[in-house]
Design a binder for these strands. Structure first.
Lengths: 164, 164
DNA sequence: TGCTTTTAGTTACATATGAAACTATTATAA
DNA sequence: TTATAATAGTTTCATATGTAACTAAAAGCA
């Protein structure tokens, strides 16, 4: 990848991808415990609900495009939400391959119930940070996410030139 | 980050736990592709290697304590690393329940090979950020992780008093 | 038109993961 | 002591997840 001092030690608890993974998993465990315990809702299902609350009438592919979920996850979440009566779908007339998705009344009620609690959770979390850090965080995540995608997609082979 | 009233809409792509999850998963996919492709090594296995490189002679429980991994994951990773000859273990004389773990020469060689590449990857990633943001990030992650654990363990019920 | 490719979405399979049960050993305490 | 609880680590089982294969419909194109 890039030639650093080849003998630099890696300290796991200081390693950024590891730290992000631990944090994200901790949050995810809290939240999914809450979704599951209170509402019989898995995290992928919640994501689908949240996205459709904002953008009713999306197709499954549309949900995929807006959520970093893969299409199998979306397909399964949608199937379960349909069974639960939280979602309805209608085959498109022009293109009979796709179906558009909408929240039912029950789905909308669920969203109105869960969304404020999720936001309250986020607020509690952010109170760990100063106002200044809260404001930086959004930008930092955006930059890191963009870079992570570039690295994953191999658009960056090795840019660093031993910056010392 | 998000100025939300109790009835504010939740926008998934702005929701901190979601964003962290997407970022962590992207990084994890890159890295585990690399570990697996180049070294036949799973992420949990890599974590065990990294921790033992720093702290030889830990028990499995010691690895658990230092890594947010659960004991089943550690047990499985250790079993596989033993089979691969990357780890050795010795039953403790005082307490015959526990075994101490050490990297073999092969394990050490693997660590010396992978660690610099992982660090290089981290460096590439961090170059997305200004020097100032790089320095803030560590502190932010520490604060968020601590708060996330408090929330998960229920030590905080609801502290916020509508700060808006 | 008819052949090939692409896209939407589902299903099948193989692997990963975590909770809980289990084995073996040590600690506690009546 | 000897019953009870606690700890280290493994195994079992049930679920989650991703890859690849599949079906159906549409698009490209010869």
């Amino acid at each position: 990848m890039s030639p650093n001092r080849p003998d630099a030690a890696l300290h796991l608890e200081q390693f950024l991808p590891y730290r992000l993974s631990v944090l994200a998993n901790t949050l995810s465990a809290s939240l999914s415990g809450f979704y599951a315990g209170q509402h019989d809702l898995s995290p992928p299902e919640w994501r689908v609900i949240a996205v459709l609350a904002q953008s009713p009438g999306l197709t499954a592919a549309g949900v995929v495009a807006r959520t970093a979920m893969d299409k199998v996850a979306v397909s399964r979440a949608v199937a379960r939400l349909l069974r639960q009566g939280r979602l309805s779908r209608r085959q498109s007339a022009e293109d009979r391959r796709c179906t558009t998705l909408e929240l039912t009344r029950a789905g909308q009620a669920l969203y109105r119930n869960v969304a404020p609690q999720a936001l309250a959770y986020e607020r509690e979390l952010l109170q760990a940070l100063s106002k200044a850090d809260q404001e930086r965080l959004g930008g930092i995540l955006e930059l890191l996410t963009a870079r992570a995608r570039e690295l994953r997609d191999g658009r960056i082979i090795s840019a660093s030139k031993d910056p010392g």
